[in-house]
Each structure stands twice: as structure tokens, then as C-alpha cells.
């Protein structure tokens, strides 16, 4: 049983980070109706910037982290302004192709600037795992889960209670009406991308410190799709629950199945879950039920 809990708890903590990345994706989809295939690459880019600041330029963390967050927020703003705004009102497929192109550009330019070899991000976190009730928990995982959870809680508050958050939900609900009450819809779009950039920055540091930073880091983005489909493409709580579910299930399944099949369960199972979700409940567990009065 300890083995199961070991897998499950560590899986949940990884899932928390999936949730973080998924949040950025859902937010952009909800507010701007753009399916952002470059979310994983944004995370990778965040990781590269973090590695550059911390490992290459040896900046102290107290400076590096704010600079990283600022850079990624700015990147979010710029991408929205330069790449996506000209496409407002275009067909979905054009926008999707642009985000796929954006993914390649981000990947290529990061490798171009900082090199393709794997970089490590050294965070001042101890390496030996804690052992709690026979469960091995690595400190990096704990920090990552806590940072992700903190960000998600802060975002949830912002989204539900702050005036900007309410305005963002209003835009997601009815764009024309939002304009009618004087909400600056373009600014809301930009803020959505900025927050997605922020989530990607945190994701980049955390994932980067665990896996090392190279272009492979973008593959994290692949786990986002099962998470958001499971949770509901346009639901913020759904992104969190979906992320946790994918993290927990893949970890447990990999622990029990991998010894027999020789690995790969982690990459394969989330997509099986996604296909099942699409067959049974295509709008996800928390997806928007369209309110219709009869």
C-alpha cells in the first residue's frame, strides 16, 4: 500500500504542475477562444530564460525570479499584440496554425539563442527525499506543488473576486455585451496572455529544475491536452482537477504497469483517458453547460 501512496502522492504533486500549465491554456481559450498549441513551448521558453538567468548569468534568485516573471508577462503581451490581434475575426484554423507556427518559432529561437544542450537550473532545495509514513517525497516536488498551488489559489481569487477577473469572465461570456459596458476587450485579451506567460514562467522554472532545460521541455505541453479535455476546455477548476487526475493516474499506472511493458505508460495513458473522456463526456467534467431557459 505504501508503494501505491508513494506513486499517488508524487503523481498529484506532478499533477499540480500540469494544472499550472493547463490553467494558462484554459485562460486563453476561455477569454479569447484561441486554442493555444504553443503553451508547452511557452513553458519551455520560460525554462530557457530561467536557466539563462540563473545558470548562465549567475543572478541571485531574488533578482532572477522577478526578472523571469516580468520577461514572460511581457512576452505574453507582445505575442498577443503582434501575433494574435491581427487574427481577430479570422477562421479558427488560421489561428490554430498560427499558434502551431508560434510553437516552432519559440522552440527554434530558444535553441538558437541559448543552445540546444540540456541546461540545469540549480534551485537551493535539498536533494535527499523526505520520508513521511514510508512515502518518499522529493523536496523539489514539494516546492513545485506548493508554488503551483499558491499560484492557482491566487489566480482563483483574482478571477472570481477582482474587478479585472470579473471583466475577464464577462468577456468570455459575451464579448459584445462586454464592449457595451465599456470593458476594453483587447486589454483583457492581453492580460489573459500575460497571465498565461506568468504560469508558463513558473512552470518553466519548476519543470526545468526537475528535468533540465532543453527543447524537450515543450513536451510538457502534450500533457495539457488530456488534462483540459478531462476537466473541460473552458473551465478553470476543470484545468486544476484535470491536471491532478492526469498526474495521479499516470503515476500510479506507470508504477504498476511499466515493469511489465518496459515503460512509456506515462506518455500513453493520458491520451487513452482523453479519448475516453471525449467519447463519454466531450465537454469534460466541468465544461460549460450552456444555460438555456425554456
Amino acid at each position: 500500500m505504501a508503494f501505491f501512496f508513494d506513486l499517488f502522492v508524487n503523481g498529484l504533486m506532478i499533477g499540480m504542475m500540469y494544472a499550472l500549465v493547463a490553467l494558462g491554456f484554459v485562460l486563453i481559450y476561455k477569454a479569447t477562444s484561441v486554442v493555444n498549441f504553443a503553451q508547452g513551448e511557452l513553458v519551455m521558453f520560460g525554462g530557457y530564460v530561467a536557466a539563462a538567468l540563473i545558470t548562465l548569468y549567475h543572478l541571485p534568485l531574488a533578482i532572477a525570479i522577478p526578472v523571469l516573471l516580468g520577461t514572460m508577462v511581457l512576452l505574453g503581451f507582445v505575442l498577443e499584440r503582434v501575433v494574435l490581434r491581427p487574427l481577430v475575426g479570422q477562421q479558427v484554423i488560421s489561428v490554430v496554425m498560427v499558434t502551431i507556427g508560434l510553437a516552432s518559432v519559440l522552440q527554434g529561437s530558444a535553441a538558437l539563442v541559448w543552445g540546444a544542450q540540456t541546461k540545469n537550473i540549480q534551485l537551493p532545495i535539498r536533494l535527499e527525499p523526505y520520508i513521511i509514513w514510508e512515502i518518499y517525497i522529493s523536496p523539489v516536488n514539494i516546492v513545485a506543488a506548493l508554488v503551483s498551488a499558491g499560484f492557482l489559489v491566487a489566480f482563483a481569487w483574482f478571477f472570481r473576486k477582482s474587478r479585472m477577473g470579473i471583466a475577464m469572465r464577462a468577456v468570455a461570456n459575451d464579448q459584445q455585451a462586454a464592449m457595451g459596458v465599456g470593458i476594453n476587450v483587447r486589454f483583457v485579451f492581453a492580460v489573459s496572455w500575460a497571465i498565461a506567460g506568468l504560469a508558463a514562467a513558473l512552470g518553466g522554472v519548476l519543470w526545468g529544475s526537475m528535468l533540465g532545460v532543453d527543447t524537450q521541455l515543450a513536451l510538457v505541453g502534450l500533457k495539457v491536452f488530456p488534462a483540459v479535455i478531462l476537466g473541460g476546455l473552458d473551465s478553470v477548476p476543470g484545468a486544476i482537477v484535470g491536471g491532478l487526475m492526469i498526474g495521479g493516474i499516470e503515476s500510479v499506472a506507470a508504477g504498476y504497469v511499466d515493469p511489465y511493458v518496459g515503460g512509456g505508460t506515462k506518455d500513453f495513458l493520458p491520451y487513452v483517458l482523453m479519448i475516453l473522456a471525449l467519447m463519454i463526456r466531450p465537454y469534460g467534467f466541468f465544461g460549460r453547460e450552456i444555460i438555456e431557459r425554456v
Binding site: 470579473i166 471583466a167 469572465r169 464577462a170 461570456n173 459575451d174 455585451a177 459596458v181
Partner: peptide, 25 residues
Amino acid sequence: VQVMEGRHVFEHLTVDENLLTGAYT
């Protein structure tokens, strides 16, 4: 301020939140 035809309230927001959006400016 225009009150659009067909009301166009934000269905997914509460009544309170709807009113708050009106004061965005």
C-alpha cells in the same frame, strides 16, 4: 450606455457581478 436588444446579460456571472461589470469604467 446602450442596453442591447435581447438583454445580453452575462449568463454565467451572478446578478451582483453583472452589475459590477457595468461600473468597469
